[in-house]
Computed example of a mutant assay.
Amino acid sequence: MRKKLLKGLLVLLLPLFAFTTAHKFYLSVTSVKYSEKEDALQITSRIFIDDFEKVLDKRFGIKGNLATKDESPIAMDYIEKYLKSKLVIKIDGEVVAYDFLGKEYDDDIMVCYIEIPKVNFPEVKSIEVQNEVLFDLFVEQQNVVHFRLKDIMKSFVLIRENNKGMLKL
């Protein structure tokens, strides 16, 4: 009796498992830290390489071949161009320019390094991050922003409809 019940259950459940697919997460993680030594905001943004490849292709028609020996020599310029159009930093309500220092790869992740020099942190009242990275390509995209500034730690999950996180100091 027990065997028949198990077989019956298996027959009912098997079709359900046959048509499920693994869900892909669309996520980036950006960390904002203050370096007292450099008097600079240091920002790292971690983005899946395959997702960024798609945005380079769709937005700019570039085959980046990121993280391969055939990486496009213009990929770095387009990575910087895209980030500067989608990642906006404000200090005390004013948009600030930042330096794109470069990138490196960590398995399937591209780590981008950004710096805002000469911040004069003791006088800063608020820092806002508007992160729209990959929102133009993936509806499900979420961009996590972690602030770690002196003894303050705060995180935001940004989505298309709510793409800004502000830390008041």
Rank of each mutant, 00 (worst) to 15 (best):
I47R: 04
I47M: 06
F48R: 01
I49Q: 04
D50N: 06
D51A: 08
D51T: 02
D51I: 05
D51Y: 07
D51R: 14
E53C: 03
E53H: 03
E53N: 04
E53T: 00
K54S: 13
K54E: 13
K54I: 14
D57T: 07
K58I: 15
K58V: 15
R59T: 04
R59K: 14
G61D: 07
G61H: 00
I62R: 05
I62V: 10
K63Q: 15
K63E: 15
N65Q: 09
N65C: 06
A67K: 08
A67V: 04
T68D: 15
D70N: 10
D70L: 06
E71F: 14
S72C: 09
S72L: 07
I74N: 09
I74K: 14
A75P: 00
D77T: 05
D77E: 15
D77W: 03
Y78E: 12
I79W: 01
I79L: 01
I79T: 03
E80L: 13
E80M: 08
E80V: 06
K81H: 13
K81W: 06
Y82Q: 08
L83I: 10
L83E: 12
S85G: 11
S85D: 15
S85T: 14
L87A: 08
L87H: 07
V88S: 10
V88M: 12
V88K: 15
I89E: 10
I89N: 11
K90Q: 14
K90C: 03
I91F: 08
I91Y: 10
D92G: 13
G93T: 09
G93M: 09
G93E: 14
G93P: 02
E94R: 06
E94C: 01
V96Q: 09
A97F: 13
Y98Q: 01
D99A: 10
D99R: 01
D99E: 09
F100Q: 06
L101A: 06
G102Q: 11
G102P: 14
G102T: 11
K103R: 06
E104Y: 04
E104H: 02
E104N: 05
E104A: 00
Y105S: 10
Y105H: 06
Y105K: 01
D106S: 12
D107H: 07
D108L: 14
I109A: 12
I109L: 14
I109M: 12
C112L: 08
C112M: 14
Y113A: 00
Y113M: 02
Y113R: 01
Y113L: 05
Y113V: 00
Y113K: 09
I114T: 04
I114A: 00
I114Q: 03
E115K: 11
E115M: 10
I116T: 02
P117T: 05
